[in-house]
Amino acid sequence: MPTVYPKGSPTELLGLLVLLEGHKGSEDVALLADDLDLEIDEIFPSLEFAEVLQLVKVTDGRATFTELGRKLVAASIRERKTILREQLRKTALFRTILRALENSPNHRLSDEELGHIVSFTTARADEAEQNIVNWGRYADLFRYDADEHVLVAVRRPSPPRSGGRTPPPSAPAAVAPSAMVAERKSTGADPPASLLPPRARA
């Protein structure tokens, strides 16, 4: 089982999907990489993360679009952002981070606290932290204050529409604690909010 944190940047992931689309939506991973004169391990991080976000399925060394992946490539720049936001929310890692963010007294999370969460998943903590921040900012899941080195929660008034099997937090942000409880109840199958290693659910 791979542990999961974001790899590559959003634009890189999009590049991979565009590349795959150029191959009619399904291609051997090696040939895909070859198309851009890349080694497999250069597209692999993005591929792995695309799989986590359920945009691509990889079986027998062959990458194939999921329905959502196809939709994302066809979408506008703005719609892509929304799709990725929803998919990121479903990952255990981002759920853990968002929860920790909600639970912290002033809805802030320092680099070190983030590091604690990340260090369960991988040795390359620095890069992981950067990628998490990059993706979280891109998807507007949280803000980041680079002077203070803290993640800052975003208060979003309208709950986003449900895109997958994880029910979104249903309560408005002002009553965050109860929203937390509601979410925890409804996602009983998932690890509790303690800082357990977030795992990809394949």
Partner: peptide
């Protein structure tokens, strides 16, 4: 918004990735 940069408004260039910088 049209270039997909929301969320990075207050970031400084060195905090963001190359793809975002060119956006």
């Amino acid at each position: 918004s049209v270039t997909g940069l929301e969320g990075f408004e207050e970031a400084y260039p060195r905090e963001i990735s190359g793809g975002m910088r060119q956006r």
